[in-house]
Amino acid sequence: MNIFRLLGDLSHLLAIIILLLKIWRTRSCAGVSGKSQILFALVFTTRYLDLFTNFISMYNSAMKLIYLVCSYATVFLMYFKFKATYDSNHDTFRMEFLVVPVGGLAFLVNHDFTPLEILWTFSIYLEAVAILPQLFMISKTGEAETITSHYLFALGSYRALYIVNWVFRFYTEGFFDLIAIVAGCVQTILYCDFFYLYITKVLKGKQLTLPA
């Protein structure tokens, strides 16, 4: 564990909590992509099956459980409790366009051809693209609520911090996981355009709107 990893995990947790609180406090999930949230729940479910097979630390198990519970809670709030506020007309990205190719790739490119390892690989690839329905939704409506953009910024920061963590681990421990690194870089690149808009608009007190 290094400081970048820890900050990355906390940033990830912050993102998840910002989103849950936003939905809970405003009693509305307008502007949030339910598709992205379902994909994240699927990511955590397929990745954290190792909760049952190997123990790393209390921190590791506790964080996994928190991520899992929070992601299912978000999906529950969006599709059941506050379903009436869910903006499904603008959430039109087709999940199968991500899940099917990612599943195929996980079968072809993995560290070991075993069920748990393939599911882990699937979760890594899927996480890289799971935010696309949300970004697609923002590009369709042309704007995002400020709180939604804070959520995305925290989520993007988590990815960027993980890259720094990998560089650090490579030099200090000689550790690297090529699958995680390539997928993590792809994921971080997807946020670049958003980061630019966040810094030029949201941090100056304006709402996030896309240039016409």
């Binding site: 990830h12 790393i56 390892e117 882990w120 996981d177 090529l178």
Partner: peptide
């Protein structure tokens, strides 16, 4: 590809 290790990252 690198050797398989327990996944200590989240």
């Amino acid at each position: 590809l690198p050797i398989l290790k327990p996944k200590d990252e989240l």
